[in-house]
Amino acid sequence: MIRSEALCAAPGARSTEHNTCDTHGAWGPLAGDDLLVILGQEVTTPTGHWLALGVEAGQAVDWQYGVRDEAIDREVARVHRGGGICVAAHPHLPYPSGVFMYPFQGFDAVEVWNGQWSSDLPWNADNEAALAEWGRSLASDVHNGRFRPAIGNSDAHQEGQLALPHNVVPASGLSTEAILAGIRAGRSWIAESAGIELSLTASAGERGAGIGQRLTAREEPVTVRLDITGVPSGVVSFHTDRGTVHRESLPGDGSGAVRWQTTEAESMFVRVEVRHPGGSMAALTNPVTIRR
């Protein structure tokens, strides 16, 4: 599920069935001016699953290979040639073929939040492991000029799981190209529900940047600000290449503005996690990068 910020929360759906494109035609009557359907496939190989998003109607992606066959680059390149993006799915899901054994290199994004278990357990240890792995890679990725964004997916196997979690993507229009461009650039953030709204910005002097954007900073202080609603008594944490650098609790009504200051010399990027009092995730963002 996708929420497009720039279009008054117009929804989009990503349709990805396991190893088939036969369900693509079922979505035709549902798509319209107020609902964008992005076609895709969950490619379920013996050594990991991945998502091909933005494929043509009826386009099937080969899944009959594993790590030892060295075929993954070929299939990822096919999706890219058609304008689609490729996502490493649930890297730490603990069942045969569920753990992602391929390198992330070549993939456009990593699924750090998978909600397939149930609406009663929207965040678990497998998601925590995926988030930690992605978070550890951010410093070197940002330093090398491009980070691999994080996304969330319902991976719905039961009723009541759709949009748990979902992605909020600023986009120039309600089109497959615009939404995929926002995801590819890391402009998105992940929400537990439509009841959560947030904005993350970093500013230095008169310059500012948001999620997935780059702030050019010199020697002046950088002010990072999170505005959020919808997480009563939640705990906000700011993360940089130095790890967790700031924590602050939200009031009982779940609304607040959290500020923190840094410099370009101290922080290459800032990202945010917002958790419920018990520790489960409510929302998380991709980073704002800070460069000289």
Score class of each variant (00 low, 15 high):
166 H>Y: 01
204 A>M: 05
286 N>R: 03
153 N>F: 10
200 L>G: 06
112 V>Y: 05
16 T>E: 08
289 T>S: 13
1 M>H: 12
257 A>N: 12
148 R>D: 10
19 N>W: 04
288 V>M: 00
107 F>D: 02
258 V>D: 06
227 D>F: 06
3 R>Q: 09
194 A>V: 09
251 P>Q: 07
42 E>H: 03
53 L>D: 06
121 L>C: 15
241 D>H: 13
35 L>G: 08
235 V>F: 03
285 T>W: 07
66 G>Y: 03
290 I>R: 10
278 G>I: 09
265 A>H: 15
243 G>L: 15
24 H>P: 05
93 L>N: 04
235 V>L: 08
98 G>K: 04
108 D>K: 02
270 V>W: 02
254 G>F: 04
163 A>M: 02
56 E>M: 01
78 R>H: 12
279 G>I: 07
59 Q>R: 13
237 S>V: 13
81 R>W: 05
37 V>L: 00
62 D>L: 11
258 V>G: 00
134 W>Q: 01
38 I>K: 05
214 R>W: 08
64 Q>N: 13
242 R>M: 03
183 I>P: 04
105 Q>E: 15
209 A>T: 15
7 L>R: 12
167 N>W: 05
99 V>F: 12
76 V>H: 00
279 G>H: 05
153 N>V: 10
51 L>P: 04
187 R>W: 13
115 G>P: 07
105 Q>L: 12
94 P>G: 00
240 T>Q: 04
6 A>T: 14
111 E>F: 12
108 D>F: 01
128 E>L: 10
218 R>Y: 10
97 S>F: 10
3 R>C: 08
195 G>N: 12
118 S>L: 07
16 T>G: 06
10 A>L: 08
